[in-house]
Simulated scan of single mutants.
Amino acid sequence: MRVLSALVLPVTLAAAAAPALAQSPPDPAARVAKQQAAMKALSWMDGVWRGPAVTTRPGGVKVTITQTERSGPLLGGAVHVVEGRGYNADGSTGFNALGIISYDPDKDAYSMRSYAMGQAGDFPMTLTPTGAVWTIPAGPATIRYTITAKDGVWHEVGERVVEGQPPMAFFEMTLKRIGDSDWPAAGAIPPN
């Protein structure tokens, strides 16, 4: 009986693996083309932005900074890179973040990989007719950032959302597009 089991297991595993081996991997060119097409919806972000941002800290203390964003495509337009930098009144950097926005054709979904204040994570992003919304789970709450873009103005509101309670705004920025940028694609290393 033991000999029969030893023979049946490899035959069963080989039969189960045959369909998987017969499938070819996804066509990378087709996947990249889908990503590039999806990321065109974020082309409004391209360029350099500046304006005031106000954060309400615990206790109701409001802190105002000058917020800047620089944003552009990378990997042939398959991803979008955004750097946010907030300047204190004395010119020092009070906030710095990096976001990489991508699109997964298999899930038909956008996400943002964010790095800020010593933290990192992957967060869902949904496009809207006027911009985008991205969310961060935070225990019993969700942190929701709603971006609207119109006529060269990037307006973003951050809210703490707890089910059954009205959203509590803690962040708002209103940036104006101040120019084009070849960042992040500029400066690629040439072959020679």
Rank of each mutant, 00 (worst) to 15 (best):
M1P: 13
M1K: 12
L4G: 07
L4V: 14
S5C: 06
L7W: 11
P10G: 08
V11W: 08
T12R: 04
A14L: 14
A14E: 13
A15W: 13
P19A: 06
A20P: 00
L21W: 14
S24W: 08
Q35M: 15
Q36W: 02
A38F: 03
M39P: 01
M39E: 13
K40N: 05
K40M: 02
S43Y: 06
W44P: 01
W44N: 07
M45Q: 12
D46A: 08
V48E: 05
R50P: 03
T55G: 06
T56R: 10
R57K: 14
G60W: 07
G60E: 09
K62D: 15
V63F: 03
Q67S: 09
T68A: 00
E69F: 05
E69D: 10
R70K: 13
R70E: 11
S71I: 04
L75T: 12
G77D: 14
V81P: 03
G84F: 07
R85C: 04
N88R: 14
D90C: 01
G91S: 02
S92C: 02
T93Q: 02
F95P: 02
G99V: 09
G99P: 06
P105N: 07
D106L: 11
D108Q: 15
A109M: 11
Y110V: 01
S111I: 00
R113D: 12
Y115S: 11
A116Q: 06
M117W: 01
M117A: 14
Q119L: 13
Q119E: 09
A120Y: 05
D122A: 09
D122P: 01
T128A: 02
P129K: 08
A132N: 06
V133L: 05
W134T: 03
W134K: 00
W134V: 04
I136F: 00
I136R: 07
G139E: 13
P140V: 12
P140Y: 05
P140M: 13
T142F: 00
I143S: 01
Y145V: 10
T146W: 00
T148C: 00
T148Y: 00
A149Q: 09
K150H: 11
G152F: 07
V153P: 01
W154L: 13
W154E: 01
E159S: 15
E159K: 05
V162T: 15
E163T: 15
E163C: 02
P167C: 12
P167R: 03
M168R: 15
E172W: 05
L175S: 07
I178P: 01
I178D: 12
S181E: 00
W183F: 08
A185F: 02
A185K: 14
G187F: 04
A188H: 12
A188E: 15
I189E: 15
I189Y: 10
N192I: 02
